[in-house]
Computed example of a mutant assay.
Amino acid sequence: MSETASDRTSVPQHVAIIMDGNGRWAQQRGRPRTFGHSKGVEAVRRVVEAAGDMGIHTLTLFSFSTENWNRPADEVGALFELMKRYVAADLKSLKQRGVRIRIIGRREDLREDLAEIVGQAEAETASNTDFNLNIAFNYGGRDEILRAAQNLARAIHAGDLSVDAIDEGRFSGALDTAGLPDVDLMIRTSGEQRISNFLLWQAAYAEFHFTDVLWPDFDEAELARALEAFKNRDRRYGGVDAGAA
């Protein structure tokens, strides 16, 4: 897809997507929910490639939440296995395309084999700067904020940090997304209209786009529609239009 310099000025630099609807997509076809998750991985591949082509620099995908542990054990196991397979299968090509991979979320609960391949992916792509791909896995926005607050409190207790030194920048630096821009556009598929504990701090001034399309059917055309809607938003960050009376 061709793109001009003026196009880039209206492209959100950080897009976050709540990938919802895999289970319903499968059920509509008389297949198990795990089949829908497998098809959802194909949509991930399409969207990652399309996002880079469209000038997006950072993409964060909500893959598995801290609340998803309440799902049936076989479905949770399938989601872990799909995550492992995706990273293993795509690591080489993502690395060659200049993609930096980060897995955000609580690491303690990850299976050893998944934690190992996640660490490998992050290490092998750490020097890439063309595109940031963040996969939120075992992630919850409140949990992230709580972990950040605990780490800052530990630094204060150890005498390494003063209370007065904590500002928005310092707090942002304690989050899983340290060093990345705040979310410009958050997309949720499947018709639901809530953010489900996703990037609560980072999405403070995000624009939201909700679509009825189920995640396995989400593609470049749907992403383009979301970006077009974003272009028409008036982002004032609490201010007023420059030409307003």
Rank of each mutant, 00 (worst) to 15 (best):
M54T: 02
E49I: 07
R71K: 15
I56W: 01
A51M: 09
V44D: 02
I56C: 06
M54E: 05
T34R: 15
W69E: 08
E49A: 12
F64V: 02
L61E: 00
F62E: 01
S38D: 12
F35H: 15
R46D: 08
R45L: 00
A43Q: 02
P32S: 08
T58D: 01
V48Q: 03
P72E: 02
R45T: 01
T58C: 09
R31W: 13
A51C: 10
P32N: 13
M54H: 04
F62G: 01
P72S: 06
P32K: 13
V47W: 05
N68R: 11
W69N: 07
H57W: 00
F62P: 03
R71C: 13
A43G: 03
N68V: 09
R33G: 13
R46G: 10
R46I: 09
L59Y: 09
R46W: 04
R33K: 14
E42T: 11
R33Q: 15
G36R: 11
R45A: 00
V44L: 13
W69K: 04
V41M: 13
M54N: 01
N70A: 11
W69Q: 02
S38A: 15
T66N: 05
S65K: 08
G52L: 09
G55F: 01
F62M: 03
V47K: 03
W69M: 06
L59S: 09
E42W: 08
P32M: 11
D53A: 15
V47C: 04
V41I: 14
T66A: 04
A51N: 01
A43Y: 01
E42R: 09
R71W: 13
G55C: 01
G36E: 10
H57Q: 05
P72I: 08
E42M: 10
V48I: 12
V48G: 02
R33L: 12
K39R: 15
T66H: 06
R45W: 01
T34H: 15
V41A: 14
F64C: 00
L59C: 06
V41N: 06
A50N: 07
F35K: 14
G55R: 02
F64S: 01
E67S: 01
P32F: 09
E67L: 02
F35G: 08
N70G: 06
H37W: 13
D53R: 14
A43F: 06
P72A: 07
S38P: 06
S65M: 08
R45C: 02
R71V: 13
F35P: 10
G52N: 08
L59T: 11
E49S: 12
V41F: 09
R31G: 10
D53N: 13
P72R: 08
T66D: 00
T58R: 00
R45P: 04
G40C: 09
F35W: 15
G55D: 03
G40V: 08
F35I: 13
V41Y: 12
G40S: 08
S63I: 03
G55M: 00
S63C: 06
L59E: 08
T66L: 03
S65D: 05
D53E: 15
I56A: 04
S63R: 03
F62K: 00
H37G: 14
A43R: 00
A50H: 07
I56K: 07
E42D: 13
G52E: 10
T60V: 03
T66M: 07
T34D: 14
R45V: 00
V48R: 09
S65I: 05
A50F: 00
H37A: 10
T34A: 15
